[in-house]
Amino acid sequence: MTAPATIPPPAGRRMRQLLGSLPTWVVWLVVLLWTVPTFGLFVSSFRKVIDINESGWWTAWNDLDNLTFQNYRDIFRETAAQPSMWEFALNSIAIVVPATIIPIAVAAFAAYGFSWMEFRGRNWLFIALVSMIALPNQMAFVPLLQLFNNGARLTIPGLDWTFVLFPDLGIGNTAAAVWLTHTAFGLPLAVLLLHNFISQLPRSVFEAARIDGASHFTIFWRLVLPLARPALAAFAVFQFLWTWNDYLIAAVLLTDNEPMTVALVNLVGERGSNFQLRFASAFVIMVIPLIVFFSLQRHFVRGLLAGSVKG
């Protein structure tokens, strides 16, 4: 008797429940689309050439015995055509470590100076420095290439007198050239991130330290660096990912001792031969950034927010 009366509410509730779970469905559908490609690459990196060319990676489950580590063994083995991936990995590390440390050190000092020191033209200089974030890197390549390879000379017109402005240090085509370039390109963002953080530290801390007779250097070393550690970590993660994943700067400045990204593009270029190696290589390149990303995601997000959301 009460049945007809009670039927509508569950239907309505079910409808509402369905609508309520709609966001979950949509979000997880996007998650699926966003992760499947990477997963497909991962599976393919364990398959044989014949399998890759004849069936999709999703069929790999049918015959798990066909999976092999051979591709990984191949990329880490030195051949006449291709050096071992280890070599490229070491080149990458040789570029990334200094290219991450140097900008942090330089930017931390500058961020402190711009936040807590009064000097003429401070705002103006800060804006000029930070606005360089938007400058396309391409604007600097030709002159930097010339600077690293030949130094800089100025010929005074009329007098025909050439003057060495910057000596040829012989760092063309070396990792050092890549660090210096990464440092210059990374500094504007680094200064912005660290400045946003350091300038928000409470003023009273600095005033108390000044009254106690601490110099700027002591304040920076003893107070600012420990307090700014989250911001330093945030930028370090940022710069690490950016330098590790960089292809353009390395491709422009290096013709040998290239990092892994350049090696991968060269591998992609040779269609046909070594086709199966690119999956394993791409995955090897991705492993370290992904580990860093998943373990230090908190810092990475903080860096993003500090860089884009004011404060």
Binding site: W34, L241, N245, Y247, V268, R278, M286, P289, L290, F293
Partner: peptide
């Protein structure tokens, strides 16, 4: 996650 993947890697994927 794709933010951590290099563009070259993304291109291969």
């Amino acid at each position: 996650m794709p933010m951590a993947i290099s563009m070259v890697g993304a291109a291969v994927i």
